[in-house]
Design a protein around this nucleic acid. Structure first.
Ligand SMILES: [Mn+2]
Ligand SMILES: [Mn+2]
Ligand SMILES: [Zn+2]
Ligand SMILES: [Zn+2]
Lengths: 160, 160
DNA sequence: AGTTTGTTTAGAATCATTCTAGTCTTTTTG
DNA sequence: CAAAAAGACTAGAATGATTCTAAACAAACT
């Protein structure tokens, strides 16, 4: 993603929030910008460290509050804690995608696929039909072994 | 599910565990049986309370340990904490299905659909192709408003 | 300018989960 | 069978991510 399109994305999301009468504070803008420009699925601590230079007096409570606000407005999603650490992870969800999570090292890998849009629609429809829920969004996580861990574990098996 | 098929299911899972040289202790059997016979997506506390009469000296640490064992052996799945409470939920995963989660009240609803098996296969294949992960399983959660909350919130909106 | 409403901060409090040390149980070995 | 080793359980302490609280700050409204 280029600098320019990140800026455009930021502007678009801010417009969306403003249209809902949500105030854009410096804290919110910096956190949002961090999430748009970092696709490493950070936890709260990582976000906090990553913007410490821009907001020296920031409170972690504000990070938590802001993330909750963004989640409620379907701007970011929350990902489960990947065994190794006990903290939740966050992800700007501009382009819909799903996640592969390594059961060995906890790595989270994006999966972008054209087919995902159709799958999503089908899932939403199935849910409406069977449960009468009003669907707003959905999360898909695929679990397994990442290539690195697969190799590592195979080698261990071979040597042990 | 009838009494008989629950017993059969229990026996089958126990056989699976034994075949992997995992010991079947009284605690494990009671917890497993609870999960097979209760499809209310309980958290640790609910499980603990639900079997207190059968295992008066049970430690919560054992519940945590046992649930982790079952997850690692793909017998149960873990579901995210549903906002209202901060605890994870567990679900015996005999018949594959996905979950609709109400963003208002936190209710978790099962969604069984014949199409899910095909979707699952497609997702696993997409993941393998694009990430080279070795896929073991996947979770799908659909978020939205349950029928009860939808009605409640519409009424409120109308009255407010 | 004063009032109301919403936001942030810093630190305390909560509480789900993990860890630890000691005990008990099962399996293995001789 | 007895002894030793490995595995599992318990009770309670420790951890640490998240939430809560009270006071200061900022913006919107009258
Ligand atoms: Mn992602
Ligand atoms: Mn279920
Ligand atoms: Zn890995
Ligand atoms: Zn609901």
């Amino acid at each position: 993603m280029t600098e320019e399109s990140a800026a455009q994305t930021l502007a678009a999301v801010i417009a969306k929030l403003k249209s809902r009468n949500i105030r854009i504070t410096p804290q919110r803008e910096v956190i949002l910008n961090y999430l748009i420009t970092h696709h490493n699925h950070p936890d709260v601590e990582t976000i906090y460290q990553g913007i410490a230079d821009q907001l020296p007096n920031l409170s972690v409570a504000t990070v938590y509050n802001t993330l909750k606000l963004f989640i409620d407005n379907d701007i970011i999603i929350e990902l489960p804690s990947t065994d190794k650490d006990g903290s939740l992870h966050y992800d700007f969800f501009g382009v819909p995608h799903f996640h592969a999570i390594c059961e060995n090292c906890g790595k989270i890998t994006d999966v972008f696929a054209d087919e995902y849009s159709a799958i999503n629609k089908q899932v939403a429809q199935l849910t409406r039909q069977q449960t009468n829920y009003q669907v707003t969004n959905s999360h898909l996580e695929v679990y397994g072994l990442c290539p690195e861990c697969r190799q590592k574990l195979n080698l261990q098996k071979g040597t042990g």
